[in-house]
Design a protein around this nucleic acid. Sequence first.
DNA 1: CATCAACCCTGAGAGC
DNA 2: TGCTCTCAGGGTTGAT
Length: 282
Amino acid sequence: MPELPEVETIIQNLRRGNTETPSVIGQTFASVQVFWSKSIFEPKITQFERQLPGQMIMDTRRRGKFLHFPLSSDHLIVHLRMSGDLSMTNNTNPNGEVKQPDPHDRVFFHFQNGWRLAFKDTRKFGRIWLVPDPELVLGNLGPEPLDHNFTAEDLFMRLSSHKRQLKPLLMDQSFLAGLGNIYTDETLHLAKLHPLRRSNTISPEEAKILLSEIRSVLKEGIRRSGASIDWAYRGGDFQNYFRVYQRTGEACPECGTTIERIKVGQRSTHFCPQCQVLSKYP
DNA sequence: CATCAACCCTGAGAGC
DNA sequence: TGCTCTCAGGGTTGAT
């Protein structure tokens, strides 16, 4: 499930290209094929198919878990949700025949030079927008955790203004943009904070540690090109370095206590009951 | 405001 | 073997 590091990895690959594949920057759309109509959230498909051809990709950006492509006129925005992926491929096989879509291909963006951007999405939760103003889609997102203008004091103030459970709050994209289930569990373990701690009981010092560990986990995820989980995004190897996520019943790397799993806000949550104590906080 | 259930989907894994 | 059932997961929506 792509979270900030996986999205960052994908956007960097699209930006840089490689020896076999060109960058998406500077590519001009020729046509679009939509195989699953619900993948296009806005505008309606007919308008989407009409509006995109002729526009050039000017840049690649990431905002939270969104991929953002400023175009010559509009903005193309993609959210991969659970199982989405975006990759550049050639339109034709070596023998010259046109490649047929795989069962999980949902959208093909064809470029004028014969390359195409493929949107794969097994579980069909992904969403694509084509809008004149990116703020229409990205406007409600919270701060970027890796943005240096975002400080521990800012985080402390934001935590203090709510009385919510820490984990669901950190996963709330309007509170902070980019953390999902994996990186939140890993962060809270590193910061030695219980997932059910009330946000308004966090001290300024704890907020400082929390932000530091958020950044540390995200940067390690990016350095390892993200985590490859099940059917989802493949490429990185951060899944081999999880400390608590999906390690229920295993020993805590800090203290050896058995990792527990509970449900928090409808999400499975992994933590160490020894390192991450709740009892003293009502 | 905070919480929660339901929903959108598929495929893996369990149970029979 | 092959069927049915359960579940995960991000984000939205509507109810409590």
